[in-house]
Design a protein around this nucleic acid. Structure first.
Lengths: 225, 225
DNA sequence: TCAAAAGTGTTATCGCTACACCCATGG
DNA sequence: CCATGGGTGTAGCGATAACACTTTTGA
């Protein structure tokens, strides 16, 4: 049977970041008709001679002015009629970003939205986004991804809130700290900060232990909260 | 930017079954040049108006003469040069099959191989297969998939061996039984069989509890062996 | 009656959960 | 000196892991 090169290829990226209080994701808008101006995930066409992952990576790097990004394939979305213009296979990635690196960047037509404020998007992009969030929730349990999402130094509150956000439920402060400390992923620094303007007592700052982190990432461990 | 419909689409399926002693998977061979006769995963081209999942499903149904199959998307394989004939995006699925339903079917050019005997395959099919096996290992822990792989009735030995095979390690007989029983997924039947020709004492047969199974599948539980 | 596989309990340890108060600091 | 969030410990319980002998049956 002869090959028929009659399908178009696109890629979308669901980029998550954590702004200290909420998980946020990047939403763009369509620049052309049809649906011009409608919310959509950051997406790009992929040509026959381009690597899908590279296209996705470069799109994000250009948008966010960063030179490194954590990307993972989410799924291929390939329903026949997902795009009214023709058969488009979308290979979607999900990305985790460090908020400090991206919060200052202003990109016309793009904005960070919390999960609660996520707008209706075109095509099957809502579905893609939902799947990415589900994946994130699972990943949080299986890998110490917190460190990708947090700044180099962070308070215990930061990481505690992050986990609560990702899992969508409250976690006991003491138990959480104990478990995390047992993992030896955190290193105490001697520094501390006043997190919020009104706060009185400063919080200690932590860094993460890259060595331990690499070992755990490799093995794929099990944090069960 | 105008859409370019210049990519070809294919699908491959990694079909696992459990023959009572080993996990096996289905390997075919290429029917045309180049690489005619070379081992490959069961695969099909997908036309612009076809659903990828349907093509995958129907391929397996026709091959194995079954009318239902458990299928799950594994990943999209899309490297530019994965196929020397041109840009082919492969959306791969992994399937779990009941050995009793498929063992008798003889398909020219296809054979079941144990993981140890898996041959070198064309393109990136080795990589696809490896990823499928990794997925299976994770799924075994997270869901009671054993029931998809086993016949309607099975001995405790069957399910014990299956889990050992999937996880690639030995599991204590008594602890395994206790844990599995606690889950209430198994129902004792009054029947028993002589498993192997030489065996003396017959083994009790179990069925699984569909009701409990559905609830657990839904929740996505946690079997930690 | 023997060989072979089936089937069964106990104990020590570890991790999880639930829960409430003191501490340090800036205002 | 007080208000605010930061930081800490313990006890009970349930799950896990390690471990070896008895039972049933066919030959």
């Amino acid at each position: 049977m002869a090959i028929k090169f009659d399908v178009a290829l696109s890629t979308s990226v669901i980029a998550f970041a954590f702004n200290g209080a909420n998980l946020v994701s990047l939403v763009g808008e369509k620049s052309e008709e049809p649906y011009k101006g409608a919310p959509m995930l950051p997406s790009k066409w992929v040509r026959a001679n381009e690597s899908v992952e590279d296209v996705a990576k470069n799109m994000m790097k250009r948008l966010l002015k960063i030179d490194h990004i954590y990307l993972e394939q989410l799924n291929a979305f390939a329903r026949v009629y997902r795009n009214p213009m023709g058969r488009v296979v979308n290979i979607a990635y999900y990305a985790l970003l460090n908020w400090d690196e991206v919060k200052a960047v202003k990109i016309p037509g793009y904005r960070w939205v919390s999960l609660a404020d996520k707008p209706e998007m075109i095509f099957d992009h809502n579905e893609i986004h939902d799947m990415a969030y589900e994946r994130l929730k699972r990943r949080v349990k299986g890998r110490p991804i917190g460190f990708v999402l947090l700044a180099k130094q962070f308070t215990f509150n930061n990481i505690h809130t992050l986990y609560e956000e990702c899992l969508g439920k409250e976690l006991d402060k003491r138990n959480f700290r104990k478990k995390f400390m047992r993992s030896e992923l955190l290193m105490d620094t001697t520094e501390s900060v006043i997190e919020a303007p009104g706060n009185k007592k400063p919080s200690r700052l932590y860094e993460f232990n890259q060595h331990k982190y690499d070992k755990l990432t490799l093995k794929g461990y099990d944090f069960k909260f």
